[in-house]
């Protein structure tokens, strides 16, 4: 009974972590940007869906779509207003750009979270679930929405895999992550690849955010922890490696769930963080990292 609870609960949480981290690692893999406003974009999507449902009274489906849309728009805004001007600036030295972008996205995230807190207070918001009720899985009463969350997460990850590995545009993205100069020589406009990747990232962030809002709920306080958890999953899995992130998401998700059930919910995050420290010592490039 307990084992089934851990398996089912851990699977849903891990799927959510996986989806959140996939976008984060994709952006890093392709454009070398560590987007520290990741958590803020997710929270923006959740709050948008919450506002649509709570304030405007639209249905849970429309609210969720609006949330995803806001995640998408915010992602492109982040790219065009924050990341791209720094990437193209001639005033910043090439080797310093990475740290500039890191700082800029961090500040951008703080601005978004403060704005959300100012407009909608820092109370936690939850998005109206699309599927209500509970189902029995192996004797465990599971919220139907938890099953829905897992299914959507894996569906989206599957679609992303198809997009990257089976389409021409996806292959260009993959190539750009391996050798940006080579791609340019082949006549592919690199900046369009970047825009495309940020657009895909926006969809992922929006979907992950809205699902998180339905499953667990977030507040403007969650911005930091959300970025941190995506960051640690991605570092654990190996920066830039999508499959590494997926494995790491499940390692972290199950480790947390097992701790919560078997030790105490109060220590939930500690073993995963310890594992991260150990991996840093033993294998600094992460589980499947390339660099």
């Amino acid at each position: 009974m307990l084992i089934w609870q851990i398996l089912i609960d851990g699977f849903a949480v891990s799927a959510l972590y996986a989806l959140g981290a996939t976008g984060f690692t994709l952006i890093f893999g392709v454009s070398g940007v560590l987007n520290l406003s990741h958590g803020a974009l997710m929270v923006a999507a959740v709050v948008a869906a919450w506002v649509a449902g709570g304030e405007w009274g639209v249905s849970s489906h429309l609210g969720a779509i609006f949330g995803v849309l806001v995640g998408f728009v915010m992602s492109l805004l982040t790219y065009f207003a924050v990341v791209r001007p720094l990437q193209q600036s001639s005033k910043i030295r090439e080797e310093e750009k990475e740290i500039f972008i890191l700082t800029a996205t961090l500040l951008w995230g703080i601005m978004i979270s403060e704005l959300i807190a100012y407009l909608y207070t820092n109370n936690a918001k939850t998005v109206l679930p699309i599927v209500e009720g509970v189902v029995m899985l192996a004797g465990v009463r599971t919220p139907a929405n938890e099953v829905f969350t897992s299914v959507i997460c894996w569906l989206v990850i599957g679609l992303l895999w198809l997009l990257v590995n089976r389409t021409r545009a996806g292959k260009a993205v993959l190539a750009a992550s391996m050798n940006p100069r080579g791609v340019t020589l082949l006549g592919v406009e690199l900046s369009w690849i970047y825009v495309g990747v940020w657009a895909v990232y926006g969809m992922l962030v929006g979907i992950a955010g809205v699902l998180l809002g339905m499953f667990l709920g977030v507040s403007s306080y969650s911005v930091g922890p959300l970025t941190a958890s995506a960051f640690s999953i991605v570092v654990l899995g190996g920066l830039g490696s999508v499959s590494g992130s997926l494995i790491a998401a499940y390692v972290v998700g199950y480790l947390e769930t097992m701790t919560a059930y078997l030790v105490s919910p109060a220590y939930r995050t500690i073993p995963a963080l310890l594992l991260l420290v150990i991996v840093m010592y033993v294998r600094p490039r992460g589980l499947l990292g390339r660099r």
């Binding site: 939850t126 938890e146 667990l216 709920g217 969650s222 919910p265 939930r268």
Partner: peptide, 28 residues
């Protein structure tokens, strides 16, 4: 953020009522 394990643990001892002391944790 995830209270599933907590509620499952509580349910397993079958109490009549949960007596709460929650404030900062929010809506979860």
């Amino acid at each position: 953020t995830d209270f599933t394990p907590i509620f499952n643990k509580i349910e397993s001892v079958k109490p009549d009522v949960i007596i709460t002391g929650i404030s900062h944790v929010g809506t979860q």
